[in-house]
Design a protein around this nucleic acid. Structure first.
Length: 198
DNA sequence: TGAATGATGCGCT
DNA sequence: GCGCATCATTCAT
C-alpha cells in the first residue's frame, strides 16, 4: 500500500475542520540523517481574523507573512529565546490561519530524535511544540516549506477514527475561551493539561 | 509530586 | 525595551 500524501486541498478548508482531521495523521520529515515520522496526537487551531491569540491577528508582518499565503505550507517561528514551534498553514490566501502542532508519537527515526533530545523517554520526545521541533531538528530554516513536496509532508496512514477531545488552548493569555485545541484522548504524548479538568 | 520561575533572543511598538 | 502559541529546574510540601 502506497502512502497517501495529503494534497493542498486538504489544508485549504475551514481551519477547525482541518485541525480536527490532523489528529492521527502521519508527519514525515526527510532529515539530512534519515527519515523521521510520527503520528500527530495534539494540535491547536489559530484563526487569522477574530482570534486575538493568533500571530496574524494584528495584520501581516515579516514574520507571519506565510500565514497569509495559500494553505499547505509550514510556518515555524522562534519563541522564548530557545524554542521553535511548527504550524501548518490552513485556508487559502483569503484567510491567514494556521494550526500549531503540539504533540506526536515517534515512529521512524528514533535514533535521530534522541540525538537531538538526549535522555528523553520515547513518549516524551515529541511531547510539546518546543520538544517536537528540537527532536525533529526543525528551525526557522524549515519555515515556508511546501507540504505537497517531499521534504516535509503529511500522510493519511491510519484510517481509524480516534477519540478526539476538544479543550481550550494552552500557553496564551487571550482567546482562552475558545475550544480550539484537539488531541487524542488515548495518547500518552499529549502535552500540558493545565486547562483540562479531569 | 506539584507549583513556581528563570533562561534567552527575536519581532514588534 | 517589552512580551512571547515554552521547557527544565528548583523549591516547597
Amino acid at each position: 500500500m502506497i502512502s497517501k500524501k495529503l494534497p493542498r486541498e486538504f489544508y485549504e478548508r475551514p481551519t477547525l475542520q482541518v485541525a480536527r482531521e490532523l489528529i492521527g495523521k502521519q508527519i514525515v520529515y526527510r532529515h539530512p540523517k534519515g527519515e523521521l515520522s510520527a503520528k500527530i496526537v495534539e494540535v491547536e487551531a489559530y484563526l487569522g481574523s477574530g482570534d486575538p491569540a493568533s500571530h496574524a491577528a494584528r495584520g501581516k508582518t515579516g514574520r507571519n507573512s506565510i500565514m497569509f499565503g495559500p494553505g499547505g505550507y509550514s510556518y515555524i517561528y522562534f519563541v522564548y529565546g530557545m524554542y521553535h514551534c511548527l504550524n501548518f498553514v490552513a485556508e487559502t490566501e483569503s484567510k491567514a490561519a494556521a494550526i500549531l502542532l503540539r504533540g506526536a508519537e515517534p515512529e521512524e527515526g528514533l535514533e535521530i530524535m534522541q540525538y537531538h533530545s538526549p535522555g528523553k523517554r520515547i513518549t516524551d520526545l515529541l511531547k510539546g511544540p518546543g520538544c517536537f521541533c528540537r527532536s525533529f531538528g526543525l528551525s526557522t530554516k524549515q519555515s515556508g516549506l511546501d507540504l505537497t513536496k517531499d521534504t516535509l509532508y503529511l500522510e493519511d496512514r491510519s484510517r481509524k477514527r480516534k477519540s478526539i477531545e476538544e479543550t481550550t488552548r494552552v500557553g496564551i493569555k487571550v482567546g482562552t475561551d475558545k475550544l480550539w485545541r484537539f488531541y487524542d484522548k488515548e495518547s500518552l504524548a499529549v502535552s500540558a493539561k493545565r486547562n483540562v479538568k479531569g
